[in-house]
């Protein structure tokens, strides 16, 4: 990644995501939106899939966005962004686009990416549009009342994966969305977390720069206090623990090469530097029912995933 911001004092000051939005107190995705807009700057078009960040930011007749913004539906944010990109390209060629290099960014949640918007995302990646697609992952359909998605982890409680005698929360594992995106051989894809803002902002800058070549993708970990069932002051801590326990590894895929980023790279080099998964799980109500055996099972999955990524990084 290109290091544009070395320290906290290098971060951009101008706010392009206005206060007064209706996201819940302590919303993780809202932190992501602030930094996406701040980092991308005013010459940006945002195309938003239906989801928490659409519902809470654009309550008619008001909007929190201070950049041109388009919402169409749940399943077609990537398709609509493809059209915006094509329009900019054509009008630029004809000398009618006077805004210079304009960023086109899709913002979609896990429901709009893992599930409903997957085909339009795949189409956009395959056609090679000059668009940055940002997935903010809060691991369920939250604004509609916490229903499971393809991004919900195994054993998590949601209203559609209740905890009882027959099942213990979600049965299936979280989908490897980065794997699906990388299979399209895009120029750049990376994971980031709202706890590591400098890393995240540098990845946004890098991904935007690479859109000159083709589509890029960011997967941002963005915890949800009401959906994960934890007190709202712990949102950033939750994201930090997701990274530090290896639950959500930070890495980038840059022109076919995978690179692990700190602190994930440190814990792969020295497993003692990885915190026990329990620290991430224990303050979340959605995992309150887990037994030691089930936590052990999840921990094995985390370790196996880190080993898998380390192998990919060594190729």
């Amino acid at each position: 990644m290109k290091v544009v911001y070395k320290a906290i004092w290098d971060l951009p000051v101008e706010e392009l995501f206005a206060s007064g939005h209706r996201a819940c107190a302590g919303c993780g995705p809202a932190i992501a939106m602030r930094w996406i807009t701040k980092t991308a700057g005013p010459n940006t078009v945002v195309v938003n899939a239906t989801g928490c960040m659409e519902v809470t930011t654009t309550q008619y007749p008001e909007t929190a966005w201070m950049v041109p913004y388009l919402h169409v539906a749940f399943e077609n944010a990537a398709a609509a962004a493809s059209g915006v990109d094509s329009a900019i390209r054509v009008t630029s060629k004809k000398g009618l686009w006077r805004s210079g290099k304009t960023n086109v960014i899709v913002i979609a949640g896990d429901g709009g990416t893992y599930d409903i918007g997957l085909q339009s995302l795949s189409g956009m990646l395959e056609r090679g549009h000059h668009v940055l697609y940002i997935l903010y992952d809060n691991e369920a359909y939250m604004n509609t009342g916490i229903q499971r998605s393809g991004g919900t982890p195994r054993y998590a409680w949601t209203t559609t994966t209740p905890v009882g005698r027959a099942i213990r929360g979600k049965i299936q594992a979280k989908k490897d969305i980065m794997g699906i995106v990388m299979a399209h051989r895009v120029p750049y894809a990376a994971t980031a977390s709202i706890s590591n803002i400098i890393d995240m902002s540098n990845k946004i800058k890098t991904a935007l720069e690479y859109t000159e070549e083709g589509p890029t993708f960011l997967h941002i970990m963005a915890p949800c206090p009401p959906g994960w069932r934890f007190p709202e002051e712990r949102t950033v801590e939750a994201a930090r623990l997701a990274v530090e326990t290896g639950y959500f590894p930070l890495y980038e895929y840059d022109h076919g090469k995978i690179r692990l980023n700190p602190p994930t790279s440190n814990m792969v080099a020295d497993p003692k530097r990885r915190k026990p998964l329990r620290e991430f799980l224990k303050f979340q109500g959605r995992f309150a029912h887990l037994t030691d055996a089930e936590i052990g099972e999840l921990e094995k999955e985390v370790v196996a995933n880190l080993e898998y990524l380390a192998k990919l990084a060594s190729l």
């Binding site: 206005a18 007064g20 939005h21 209706r22 008001e62 966005w65 201070m66 950049v67």
Partner: peptide, 23 residues
């Protein structure tokens, strides 16, 4: 007075909504 097509013409107009009362 409302523009056709669900368009919001004032950027950052959510600032009219004072969320301090949630606290």
């Amino acid at each position: 007075e409302i523009p056709i097509g669900g368009i919001i013409t004032e950027p950052g107009s959510s600032r009219r909504n004072l969320t301090g009362g949630w606290r």
